[in-house]
Design a protein around this nucleic acid. Sequence first.
DNA 1: CGCAGAATTGATACATCTCAAGCTGGGTGG
DNA 2: CCACCCAGCTTGAGATGTATCAATTCTGCG
Lengths: 248, 248
Amino acid sequence: MLVKDQTATFHDCAECPIRHRAVCARCDADELELLEGIKYYRSYEAGQRIIWSGDRMEFVGSVVSGIASLTQTMEDGRTQMVGLLLPSDFVGRPGRAEAAYDVVATTDLVMCCFRKKPFEQLMETTPHIAQRLLQMTLDELDAAREWMLVLGRKTAREKIASLLAIIGRRDTSLHMGKLSERVTFDLPLTREAMADYLGLTLETVSRQMTALKKDGVIELEGKRHVVVPDMDRLLAEAGDDSDGGLLD
Amino acid sequence: MLVKDQTATFHDCAECPIRHRAVCARCDADELELLEGIKYYRSYEAGQRIIWSGDRMEFVGSVVSGIASLTQTMEDGRTQMVGLLLPSDFVGRPGRAEAAYDVVATTDLVMCCFRKKPFEQLMETTPHIAQRLLQMTLDELDAAREWMLVLGRKTAREKIASLLAIIGRRDTSLHMGKLSERVTFDLPLTREAMADYLGLTLETVSRQMTALKKDGVIELEGKRHVVVPDMDRLLAEAGDDSDGGLLD
DNA sequence: CGCAGAATTGATACATCTCAAGCTGGGTGG
DNA sequence: CCACCCAGCTTGAGATGTATCAATTCTGCG
């Protein structure tokens, strides 16, 4: 399987695509070697569940490639996505035995895993890891709070625009720097996943996508490929005062 | 002023009421002494703004007594509370120059402050502080994500019940341990603040409070004093499967 | 070809918002 | 001590945005 083959190419941390953004970002060569000793790769297919809420967690790790989602579900089936895990994002919580959320692979996914115990021990002796993890956790907390504003106070149209803006911005920051020009990306989420993220129904997501298209805020090629002719316009629709948003 | 007098009594960290829960919880006597060297107390009156979003942060610190709220505001005035700061909670983000949120004193408040620079330096050399801060940040992240479910998927009635359950649980865990018995507490929030927390209007909050009262889920003495005859009933109304919620 | 999952579109129901009056209780000044 | 005032709260009637239920239409794929 293609995904399996990819993993082989990451064996050396020095050449890892997320080397400078993940939890190991601050580690020097010596520390990296210690991490290499306890790491292993795992691949998942799109749709596969990685972790069940309430399960015992035997590992923590980083997303290397692909996208996963953190979700919570109520007894009656209502679900809310509470996090989008992108390459370099950390999964799992040191010091906690059981998972608090479901983690599901949204696309095909590769993770760099560490068994939990050894990782926790390493954290005690390697301040660089704990420091980086603190930084990343603070960033995630900011993103979560930004998202609370979206969930609590924005209209359906603004919610969609906000989501598109995040994804668009992230994709662009990876490629080149020029914003507020024509931006193009693929939606990694189904309408249903978008609805779960935004606290809407998939019908409402669909209607608002159509409306944004009709108003010229976005263009659609197929269902998943999005073109944003004017990023500032999109940000205005999102209700953002064009300053930074999530995920800096 | 009464609040001023109180601060005098906290001069010694060893006798501080939040000694074992705040960011200094893991510090030993030596480390505490270093912290004492850079700390100072500040008092605020109910309603006073502690920090403006976008302002330069010159200090970080812990809430010693009272309650504060973290809020975000959109240009058109819509506001969303993104955090409730209780005694022992940490304010500010080491490594960031500007505040991302407004912080407002909900009740009269005392804070234990550290100038930001010295605190950051101390963090570098004192793993116990960084470790504790990581733990607290992870807890806050969990609370924020729990709240995303409330904002995104719960009905107005469930939202109110959820908020009352959190406040009730916290108050009880401070006093005695026996839950699911009669629980009593004062609401530290106005209806408007509740609305800002829950992503509702204050009219809807008021109506749902009335409805919960009429249905016997809660009793009200005056506007602010709440009696919960059956905590399990309240949790059921919140849509929680009676397991833990926020703020463990 | 035809099926299945994903997405769109339509008609209607309903929860919450909005706008507009009143109410309540604690504090202030005459 | 009373009358008034005002912030906080409650209640009402109607408007509106989103959910719900129900068909279709699309799209990729075996």
